[in-house]
């Protein structure tokens, strides 16, 4: 199995047991999952390792008897879950703290891997980079996902999140899940998120922020220049100003989180440097991102 950047073999092993759990029905119908729908095609497509929640009707007892492996059968004509992975690769993702980009890329790899393991159709976009991967299916596509992630160079160029999201949204067809991984540090980031919702996407919003962004240690008289937008702001850092920043950041985080969750999506805030293992344990499983 191909190794994804930022993930250990053990973490991949753990993730291979899970599937993405969309909150809304209608974003895709899973043939492998227990469903209200009774009409199913039975054209065999592939085997997949059994995961909790899989319909026992598709469990392959012969493979279990002969090889001792627990697998389920999947069928070609089942409606696939379309998963769109959008990774922000603008300059802000590496500014000040390289761990922020590494964490974002590892999350992208982890959730993309789970999607592939669940037999979902995955397409991936990197904002700020032209590289796009479409129609990845099945765990055999893990190598292509890993290659795509490896090919994205460390972000260094300014790029607007809004423009990047607009470009992705224009390419989306039909309902599905969009996993957007970004720091979201743009004034109109909320409208970017809403654009996905308007396209019948269940938005999974992953906001990655560095320690310095959460609690900045700036002092003195400063001319602040935004690395992505080029905006400038003149200020003298005082306790009051620092407190104002924290307050604005908190409001911004809540706004973006609400934009995702109010439309039936999910949202999480990740501090740069967090491990995939901790995310599985503390967020994804308890909040039913995967299961």
């Amino acid at each position: 199995m191909a190794v994804l950047p930022g993930l250990s073999a053990q973490e991949q092993q753990v993730l291979s047991r899970y599937r993405l759990l969309p909150r809304r029905r209608g974003v895709g119908t899973h043939g492998e999952r227990l469903s209200q729908s009774q009409g199913m095609s039975h054209e065999f497509r592939d085997f997949r390792e059994y995961a909790d929640g899989d319909d026992l009707r598709h469990f392959d007892w012969n493979v279990l008897a002969r090889l001792g492996q627990r697998v389920v059968r999947t069928y070609q004509d089942e409606q696939e879950l379309k998963v769109t992975l959008v990774l922000d690769a603008s300059a802000s993702m590496t500014s000040h703290d390289p761990a922020k980009w590494e964490t974002a890329r590892a999350i992208a790899g982890a959730l993309g891997f789970v999607a592939l393991q669940g037999g979902d159709a995955l397409q991936s976009f990197a904002i700020g980079r032209g590289g796009t991967v479409r129609s990845l299916r099945g765990y055999t596509a893990t190598g292509r996902l890993a290659h795509w992630l490896d090919e994205i160079p460390e972000p260094s160029e300014a790029h607007s999140l809004r423009k990047g999201c607009e470009a992705v949204v224009n390419q989306l067809k039909g309902p599905g899940i969009t996993i957007l991984i970004s720091d979201g540090l743009e004034p109109d980031a909320e409208s970017s998120l809403r654009a996905f919702v308007r396209r019948q996407q269940e938005l999974w919003w992953v906001q990655v922020l560095s320690e310095d962004e959460l609690d900045p240690g700036l002092t003195g008289d400063l001319e602040l220049v935004d690395v992505d937008l080029g905006h400038m702001r003149t200020t003298t850092i005082t306790d009051e100003v620092r407190e104002g920043y924290r307050s604005n950041l908190s409001a911004h985080i809540n706004t973006l989180s609400a934009a995702a969750t109010r439309s039936g999506g999910k949202a999480m805030l990740v501090k740069a440097g967090a491990t995939i293992e901790s995310l599985i344990r503390d967020v994804w499983r308890p909040q039913r991102w995967i299961g």
Binding site: S92, S95, D226, H231, R233, N248
Partner: peptide, 8 residues
């Protein structure tokens, strides 16, 4: 350089 000048 900062990632969120608009928040200050």
């Amino acid at each position: 350089k900062t990632t969120a000048a608009f928040l200050w």
